[in-house]
Write a protein that binds this DNA or RNA. Structure first.
Lengths: 126, 126
DNA sequence: GGCAGATATGTAGTTGTATCGATGGCCCTG
DNA sequence: CAGGGCCATCGATACAACTACATATCTGCC
């Protein structure tokens, strides 16, 4: 079960959701799990949070190693996973590599996890 | 990085979110990552989907092994992780153990992942 | 009480992941 | 163009997770 590259964009178009009525297929489950796996790490959550709260909403690797207390290769590794999952975008300016959130990426995941608005409330008593 | 038991309930009260302005603390990141890690597995996503789409919104272990193609101990193992993460609830009736979704659990995760500017506005049903 | 079926737990092997040190590539600057 | 700082990649290591088989526990029934 490896991380899934650009699976997020592929999923959000046909709205593959585990809570949308029909059981999801194996392949879709693996893609969604791949994106969630990119999120499911404390270091990566903190990276997203740090980048989001940074001035101009962007940060370079050298700004992120100290707050996390992790080595530069490790931070670079996590940023790579987040970028390949479609959650971050990378822009190189000079010697620095600036990372910023992809605006709608996390929101797309949140939407996938949001159940369709229940109106009928068909929860039957047993 | 192990799974976190009832961390979901603890998190949703003070609204710990990686996208809420301030960088999240290490401890909060670990708790949120623990819950997300419980979600970030294809077998467990399919379990949630199968249970959600089952009649009466509940299913027992014997109904879930065949669709997943996994052994009974493995399915039981995944259900345990989902239950300890607060995503499922277990009720034993007779010899069967029925699992159902905790109504607001996944929605709570979705809210944590929704940026503040969008939070509160009801997303449209599909 | 003893049997049978449904779940849970224990043990183990294989695979995946996080982390670091060392190294190489790149781009400014002097 | 040579040096230095920033970043990505490589190789190695320790730990966590998925899965299955074997076994234990629980419940209802005869």
């Amino acid at each position: 079960m490896k991380y899934v590259g650009t699976a997020l964009a592929e999923m959000t178009m046909p709205q593959i959701s585990p809570l949308a009525g029909e059981p999801i297929e194996k392949h879709d489950a693996e893609r969604l799990a791949g994106v969630l796996k990119a999120l499911a790490d404390p270091a990566r959550l903190r990276l997203l949070s740090l980048i989001q709260s940074a001035p101009d909403g962007e940060a370079c690797v050298c700004d992120l190693t100290a707050p996390l207390g992790l080595s530069q290769p490790t931070v670079s590794h996590h940023l790579r996973i987040l970028t390949e999952s479609g959650l971050l975008e990378r822009e190189k300016r000079g010697v620095w590599a600036y990372y910023r959130l992809v605006p709608s990426a996390i929101g797309a995941i949140a939407d996938l996890l949001t159940p369709p608005r229940k109106r009928g409330t068909k929860r039957a008593a047993r």
